[in-house]
Design a protein around this nucleic acid. Structure first.
Lengths: 166, 166
DNA sequence: TTGCTCCTCACGTCACGTGAGGTGGC
DNA sequence: TTGCTCCTCACGTCACGTGAGGTGGC
């Protein structure tokens, strides 16, 4: 019961990936990977005799998380701090605390961004709906009519996002 | 019926905002606004005699859309092309076509990003749920046990995002 | 006149892009 | 040996940040 059968016998020597294949799978450039190594954000597992970088497939998950966190607008230095955990062999408790708080912070950040983008998407939908009405209208937005704001047909204010395009 | 009463008599001279107040309301820096002007992305309505930039409140919507599109990872040059519409007085049809296609493209981009972030949030939730189990476990992730992957208790693979933090 | 805001350079920074010139490994 | 991939500089770029030194307007 303590050591149940593993799902698969886990190959002892999983084939390492060279930087090109690793980059291709993650959809990033070689330069990006070298820069992340320079920052200590994502270290290759090892190097060949000829100094070629070796990555593990599993590191793709770390890389993808880094990319996602960047899409939230986080700086690489901040991302580094989120992913930088104490060695669990030295400080098991501190390790768990750090990973737990990092995950909580990340979920909150994703939550907020999703909400923001959802609001923006709604504003765009509103603008598209209004614009559909304009197709059959011969009024033209000009300085003289304050760019159709408010609308000369309905008398109502134009959606914000529509005005943003004029 | 052609010209219904407007919502409010629309002040002919809405108070212009100086760059500081405009920036504060949008939450951007003065440098950002000057840079956008340089790129032709967001022009101040006018200047005072002393060369002070004047913005309109309505331009806040344009600025906020620019910021949102940047959060999708778009370059300013691309954003400029989305927001650059033909003069409706010269080409009313082309104007409508451009705004329509820009809005459609933007909605699609927001849709995709929201979906991506939603998936990532789910992966984080999965990782948090798994980590909660680790609190009462004395196994420690080390090189020797492949960093607890698969888990020594359940025998199942660790969530990707959890491994990303090790 | 004082104090705050604004102005225009202009150099710095972050996260890479993009060659230049050279080497590894099937 | 050939061809492709990889290596390390090192300079360029995008979207600003951050002063320096000077002026506007209540």
């Amino acid at each position: 019961m303590e050591e149940p059968a593993l799902q698969k016998p886990a190959p002892l020597e999983p084939t390492p990936l060279k930087i090109g294949e690793f980059a291709r799978r993650a959809g990033v450039s070689l330069r990006t990977l070298r820069y992340y190594e320079e920052l200590g954000l994502l270290q290759p597992t090892s190097r060949t005799r000829g100094k070629f970088r070796c990555y593990r497939e599993g590191d793709l998950h770390r890389l993808r998380l880094i990319q996602s966190l960047q899409e939230l607008g986080l700086r690489l230095e901040r991302i580094g701090r989120l992913l930088d955990t104490p060695d669990p062999e030295v400080d098991h408790e501190g390790f768990l605390v750090q990973v737990r708080s990092a995950l909580a912070e990340e979920e909150e950040l994703f939550e907020q961004q999703i909400a923001r983008l959802g609001l923006e998407r709604e504003k765009i939908r509103t603008a598209r709906a209004k614009l559909a009405e304009c197709d059959t209208c011969e009024h033209v937005p000009t300085d003289a009519n304050n760019h159709c704001d408010p609308c000369r047909v309905t008398g109502r204010a134009l959606p914000d996002v529509l005005r943003a395009h004029y």
